[in-house]
Every structure is written in structure tokens, then in C-alpha cells.
Simulated assay, not measured.
Amino acid sequence: MPNRSSMRDVARAAGVSLQTVSRVANGEPGVVDDKRDRVLSAMRELEYRPNSAARAMRRGAFRTVGVVYHSLHSVGTHRSLEQISERAAAQGYGTTIMPLVAASGLAANGAFTRLVEMAVDVVIVVFPSPFGAGSLEIPTSLPAVVLGPPQGHGSSSVDFDQDSAARLVVEHLVDLGHPTVHHIAGPQESFAARARVETWRSILEAHGLRVPTLRYGDWSAESGYVAMRQILADEKATGSGAPTAIYAGNDQMALGVYRALAEAGLRVPEDVSVVGCDDVDEAAAYAPPLTTVAQDWAALGEQTMRTALAMAGGAAPSDTVLPMRIVIRDSTAPYRG
């Protein structure tokens, strides 16, 4: 491989000083047209490429955000990455995406090391569940923002109010007179799923209502279908009758719930009210349109970048919780007894 041309080579070929080459490379004013043309010509002839990393180190900023994540399986991770990348670009920052081969502290720590070597200003960790093997060690030299509950390590956090998500759903269904609310939760290792389960249970207990057997899914429509069939079988076996209200952990699982209920000859919402979470684009097109909880992904992207840039600028760690809202459509109705 041929040696890479240096700024000194360009200066020598153009017959100007290193300072002049630097000004031209950085697009700075104060260089007469003749000298600028000679420098640009020399750059082309020598195939000179400015060393942006070295220049950034001198300035103390790389204008690059690193993002660490494990899987794009969930809607939340996909939308988070999309919004962060868009908001970063709007601020004039590039985004370096670092997928993990495993959801472990060891894998994450390796990613942090690589990002430090790749020269980023701040790292954003999309953190939907605990990392398993190995402790999470974010380098002190790397400002970090975690998308999820606070994790310490000197990092900031940005998250949706998962408690309010479950509260909005359960209170809505209780207000409609349903004797209880069955819940199909997301994966047990999910931070969001855990928080919603605790709130679901506590609200039912506060109203003096029966707490049904909890079922888990994996965010997929198929898992919602399987869980709903289990709930129907459980209620039949105990003689409790068909459930009248279902809270699915996300809209995809709610779609599986629709299928299981239809196969059982039960109608939504005449026989069973169903609520999801995420308010995916397709939720309004479900038959019937799905009542769900909306998360403002644009606000998440904006707040995450605002926090990330503040951390990169030396700000103290902070924790931000964003509100959620219920979108009532046609999949819920008053209890008919």
C-alpha cells in the first residue's frame, strides 16, 4: 500500500506554509485565491485526504455519536435507532452503529472499547434488558446515555414512563367496568415489561380485583396468539368463564390476541376488550382499530441527542422520563356482564 500523502507534502508541492494548507483543508477564510487554488490542485494530485480524526482530537470533538444495541427485534429498538440517527444528522453529527453479538456486559464493554478507538464524542446504549455475563463498565472517558432505567456508571438515562403505560391501560379497562384485566407481558428480562407487570398487579390489587395468571410473550404476534390460547384454556379449566379484558404488552402481541379470540368465536370488543402498546402505524388499521398506548419516538430522539450533547460538553449525568398517552379506538368497550 502506498504511503499516504501528508499535509507537509501538500505544502511542499504547492509552495505554501503548513498553516495555509490547514486553513484550506478546514475551509477557513483568509487565504488568497491563488494560494487556495494551488493547495487544492496539490491535494488532488497527491490524493491527499485530511485526517479528520487528528483534526477532531485537536479541536476536542469528533461530531460523531456511537450507538450500542443488541437486537432490532423490538419496535422500540428499531424506532430508537431511527430517531437518534435522524436527530444526530440534523445536529451535524454522524452516527456509528455498533451491534452486539450477545446481550452481555462483556460484549458491551468490548463495543465501548472499539468506539473509543473509533473516536466518538458520546455513546448511546439502547438498553431494553439487563446485560448478562460480565459487569457493564462504560469507560470514564466516554460520556454515555442509556435508553432505559438509570444504570449508574456515571451515565445519563432517557426512558418512557413505563409505570404510566400500564396505569393508563388498566385504569381505562377498570373504568369500563371489567371485573379484571388479563395481561400478556413482554419477555421477563425486559425492563419495560417488568415495570408494567408490577403496575398492572398493584392497580388490580388496589381496586380489590382478582389478579389473573400472568402470561409472557416475546413481543411477536405469534407469542400473543399462544398466550391468549393459554388464557382461554386457563379460564375454561377453572370455570371462570371467558376473559373480558386483555392488556397485551405491545401491538404485535395484540394482533395475535385478535386471532386467538376470533378462532374461539369471541368478538372484539363486544365480548373481549383488547389494548396494546406502542401505537405502531398499523394499529389504526386493525379490525377493529386498536386501543393502545403511544410513545413519542420523535421526542425520545430529541431528548436523547440533547442529553448526549450535554454529556459530551461536560454536563453532569441526568435522568429523564418521558410521558406516554393512551389512544382510545374501537377495541375497548364497557363490560356487558
Rank of each mutant, 00 (worst) to 15 (best):
H207Y: 13
G105L: 09
L168A: 13
V197N: 06
L46S: 12
G241D: 07
Y69N: 04
S220V: 06
D33W: 02
E282K: 11
V268I: 15
A312H: 05
V272S: 04
G265A: 04
G76H: 15
R259A: 13
A262V: 14
A254S: 04
A166P: 07
R59G: 12
R87D: 14
V21E: 04
Y216V: 14
L255S: 15
A90D: 15
T180A: 11
E189R: 15
D121A: 03
R4N: 08
H172F: 08
R38P: 01
A233S: 02
A248H: 02
D278G: 07
D9P: 12
L81F: 03
Y93D: 01
L72N: 07
R12M: 09
Y48L: 06
L322G: 06
I231G: 01
D175C: 14
S331P: 01
G177M: 04
S220T: 13
W297L: 08
L18P: 08
N250D: 07
M57Q: 12
G314F: 04
N250M: 02
I97G: 04
H73L: 10
D296I: 11
V125Q: 06
Y247I: 10
W200S: 05
V170T: 13
L290Y: 03
Q19A: 15
R259G: 07
E189V: 15
E171P: 12
M305H: 00
S156V: 02
T20E: 03
T320L: 10
P289D: 02
A284K: 14
G152T: 07
T244R: 00
T238L: 09
L168C: 13
S141Y: 00
T307N: 03
S141Q: 09
P187I: 04
Y335E: 06
L309S: 04
P29L: 01
I184T: 09
A315T: 04
S41G: 15
L255Q: 12
V174H: 08
R306H: 13
A195L: 12
D296A: 10
T77I: 12
H73A: 14
A165C: 13
R38S: 05
G224S: 10
R210N: 11
A103D: 14
R259V: 12
Q19S: 15
A193Q: 09
H73F: 10
G301D: 02
Q162V: 13
T238C: 07
